[in-house]
């Protein structure tokens, strides 16, 4: 059968999508990403940015939006797209400033750059990958998503909050040991 498909997105309304993002529903974030992709990337592309930069900025903006929504402190007083758009604008402005500054620094060579930082980040990322999936989730949900122990227990199927708390402590200890094994603590101090 030859097909002509009318592609249609989610039927969720904006309020419902936002509610789901607040509850940590990643599918809802994906829907938002898809929905506003052209609008948001156009902002960067029409302001001296490449498509890759546009995608990066939009993704960073959604990460910020996700974190703010998850914190429970964000009350939308405008349309969600307007809010995300303003984050994109700010991020792209910062990026343009950074580029400009970098260009000047190259000329002046006056400021020193911490060359070890990317290396440290790489080490920590590698150590994170050595943890089992549950540990990774517990730590990311706690430190980035700022989930409560109850939320973590519910999401990962732990018996109760005590289990979640113990797991988080052990996982963090494990990560600390792994990182220390790669580098002495002194290496992490500026």
């Amino acid at each position: 059968m030859a097909l002509r498909v009318f592609k249609i997105g989610s039927q969720w309304d904006e309020e419902e999508i936002f509610d789901r993002i607040q509850k940590g529903d990643e599918k809802a974030l994906e829907a938002v990403y898809k929905k506003y992709y052209r609008m948001m990337t156009k902002l960067v592309i029409t302001n001296s940015g490449s498509e890759d930069e546009a995608r990066d900025v939009y993704q960073d903006a959604l990460v910020v939006f996700w974190q703010k929504a998850r914190s429970g402190n964000l009350v939308l007083t405008s349309k969600m797209s307007t809010y995300i758009y303003s984050i994109c604008q700010n991020l792209w402005r910062k990026e343009l400033d950074r580029k400009k500054r970098l260009s000047n620094e190259e000329k002046d060579s006056s400021e020193s750059i911490d060359m070890d930082k990317p290396e440290r980040e790489k080490i920590i990322a590698q150590c994170m990958n050595q943890l089992d999936e549950t540990c990774r989730r517990v730590l990311m949900y706690y430190y980035f998503d700022e989930m409560s122990m109850q939320e973590i227990a519910d999401k990962l199927g732990f018996a109760n909050t005590d289990t979640a708390k113990t797991k988080k402590y052990k996982c963090k200890q494990k990560l600390d040991e792994l990182v220390k094994g790669q580098y002495s603590e002194q290496d992490f101090l500026d």
């Binding site: 994906e30 959604l62 440290r120 980040e121 430190y143 980035f144 990182v179």
Partner: peptide, 20 residues
């Protein structure tokens, strides 16, 4: 602080990979 920063970065990478 470095460790927590690293955990956050790992999560950001994961979200961005998901969006990609």
């Amino acid at each position: 602080k470095q460790i927590v920063e690293g955990i956050k970065k790992a999560r950001i990478s994961e979200i961005k990979a998901m969006l990609n």
